[in-house]
Simulated scan of single mutants.
Amino acid sequence: METLNLKQLSDDRAALQTAGDLEAMRAIMHDSFRYVDSSGRQFDKETFLDQFVDPASVQWITQETVTFDETVKGEIAVVQLLLEERFILGTNAYEGRFWALHLYIKENEEWLWQGGQATMIHET
């Protein structure tokens, strides 16, 4: 049952992020959210929303989940994803595969996105 719930939450997160839905994204993110992007930059909840969700900052073309794997231990879930992404950030276009590690925490029977880290995959 958890797999279906977390997979759906992960899919919903991607859909909300690429749609630029700031309020809905804010609702599924934990208040102590932390994220490190593939360039090593660190973000809290509001700076992540500003940089990677707000349509004034980012134009998402696509974010597709290639692989999804989860480990659930009580109230904590670790989700490993391989994402194919295309987006425009400022004046720069980005396209590539990213391995992402997302952490979720369960509070009051609801899973919230706690944060994570992304690494660009250089394919040869």
Rank of each mutant, 00 (worst) to 15 (best):
T119N: 10
S38Q: 12
E46M: 11
N92G: 03
E46N: 14
A93P: 07
T65Y: 03
E85D: 09
G20D: 11
A93K: 09
F43E: 04
A15K: 13
T67A: 10
W111D: 02
I28Y: 07
D11G: 02
A100I: 07
Q80I: 13
W99F: 15
G74Q: 09
S57L: 03
A56I: 02
I88P: 04
L22Y: 06
A24G: 08
D50M: 10
P55A: 06
N108K: 05
E75R: 09
E70I: 14
E109V: 08
T62G: 02
V79L: 03
E110Q: 14
L49K: 05
L82H: 04
L83A: 05
A14Y: 00
N108P: 00
H30A: 15
Q42H: 08
A15T: 07
R34Q: 12
S57C: 07
I105A: 05
A93S: 14
E85M: 10
L16W: 05
T3Q: 13
Q63E: 12
W60E: 10
A56D: 08
Q51W: 06
Y35E: 00
Y94G: 04
K45I: 03
N108I: 00
L9N: 00
F52L: 05
A77S: 11
R13I: 01
Q114C: 06
F87S: 12
K73C: 13
Q51I: 01
F87W: 13
I105G: 05
D37T: 09
Q8N: 13
L22G: 03
Q42C: 07
G40M: 03
E109D: 15
S39P: 01
S10L: 02
L101T: 15
M120Q: 14
F52P: 01
L101K: 09
V79G: 00
R34L: 09
K106H: 01
F87C: 13
F68K: 03
Y35A: 00
E64C: 08
A27N: 12
D54I: 04
G74P: 02
L4Y: 12
F33E: 01
K73Y: 09
Q114N: 08
T3R: 13
G20I: 05
I28R: 04
T71F: 02
Q51F: 10
Y94F: 15
I88Q: 09
G96I: 11
V66H: 10
N5M: 12
Q114K: 13
T18E: 05
Q114A: 13
Q114R: 13
V79F: 02
A15G: 05
A15R: 12
A14G: 06
L101P: 03
T91L: 06
I121V: 15
E107M: 07
A56L: 07
G90K: 00
G40Q: 01
A19W: 08
E95H: 15
L89R: 04
A118S: 15
E84C: 03
Q8T: 14
R41G: 00
